[in-house]
Every structure is written in structure tokens, then in C-alpha cells.
Amino acid sequence: MPKNSNLLQGWYKRPDIDFGLTVKVFYRNLKVFLKTWKANIMFNFLEPLLYLWAMGFGLGMYVSQINGLSYLEFLAPGLIASSAMFSTTYEVTYNSYTRMAREKIFHGMVATPVSMDDVVLGEILYGTFKGVLYGFVFFIVVALFGVVHSPFAILILIPLFLMSVIFSNLSLIWTSLAPNYDSFGYFFTLLISPMFLFGGIFFPVENLPAGIRFLPWFTPLYHAVETIRPLVLGQADPSIVGHFIWLIIAAIITLPFPLTMVRNKLIQ
């Protein structure tokens, strides 16, 4: 077992990627997903759907308006983003760890022309796919609730994609550091849950205490919510460009780390 401090060794080196083989790695995971997707997709939906019901209709009775929106209109678009976030992070923590550490699937793949970088990029691609898929399906639910007000709402696929890339990267970084399954509890308690609660889904971040109001700006979920909400409600204005740029830059900056860290963890 290597010291975690060494995992960043050589992070600046150009990764060894063959995109065709990366797609084959992605396809392997997709094939497994297609065997069980019905059960999985039900579960991943249920939670945001319950939130939508409980908050949107229950709590919504007491909250008359937020920034000129009904509470359901305010809440529902944000849950699209969180649905994607949860789907990606579960996949790329628990499931990736299973493939990597328990089933040794990564080891099997790299005994072929596939490189470890292909494997990791394939995992990121798959985590992103799942985020976009679950986000999009939730988007359809939101549309059924009558909250989608603009045909341009379909553009939410772009922030969903970028945000899912970022969460794939962050999750895989954690996965490369994780000594066992229990450690993922910290990831969700310390990072994911706070983002979910304070990232602007349930109430505007302006309502946070002044001292910590700046914090959401550092989270991918916040920027995704701030682009998805106006797109869904047909209220997009040039201000969303800034959030887009944040997401693009974060996706690019975080990408080298999972590649390097997983490679250093497994290849010794």
C-alpha cells in the first residue's frame, strides 16, 4: 500500500490515452448497467421525487414566493442537478471502488492494449453518462409537473455534463485515496450533503449568513443550479455565462488528478 502523499507523483505528465479503447471501457460498464437499469433507475429517482413532493407541495404551502417564483418552480430545477450529482458520485465512489479494489476489473483490462489512463477516463466518462442520464430523466419528471417553460431548457444537458465530469473527477480522487468502503461516508457527509443542502437548491444562497455566503461559489453544484434553473424557467440571461465558464474550467483543472492518482495507486 503506497503512501497517499505519493499518489500525485508525475501529475504533469501527458496521459496515455487511446480514445477508442476508452470507449470500450465505457461500453463494458454500460453493458453491466443495461442488465440492471430498471431497478437502479427506480431507486435513484425515488429520492429526488420524494423531495419534490415533500418540499414542493408540503413546504411549498408555507413558502409563497422566492425571487418571484413559486416554491415548486424554484426547487424542481435544482433537484435535476442534485439527482445527477448523487448518481455520479455513488457510481464513481462505491461502484468504481468495487471494480478497482474488489473485483480487480481494472487489472484485467490493463493486461490488454488498454492503458490505465484509458480505464480511468472510461470510468469518468461512465460516471458522467450516469449523471447526465439521471439528470435528464428527472428533467422529464419536472416537465411533467409543468415547470419547464422554455424549449431552450434542453440546453441544461451542457451544465449537467460539465458538472458530472467534475463530480466524476472528485469522486475518483476520493476513491483512489479510500482505504475501504467506510471512508466514502465522509465524502458524502462532509462534501456532498452540505452542497446539496446549501448549494442553492432549497433556498437562495443569499440567505446564508454573511460570513459563509461566499462558500457555495466554490462548489460545482451551485454553478450547475444557477445555470439549470434559468434555462428550465425560460429566464436565462447573460449572467449564466460566468457559471458556464466556471464549470468548464473546473472540469479541465480537476481532470489530471484522478488519472494520476489511480495510476499511482494501482501501478507499483
Binding site: V32, K35, T36, E103, K104, I105, H107, G108, A111
Partner: peptide, 11 residues
């Protein structure tokens, strides 16, 4: 053939 099996168990 690695010492430890690394098949795809779900497939």
C-alpha cells in the same frame, strides 16, 4: 492469466 481472477462478475 493473473494470479487473482479478475473476471467481470456481473456478466
Amino acid at each position: 492469466v493473473a494470479q487473482e481472477d479478475n473476471l467481470d462478475p456481473e456478466l
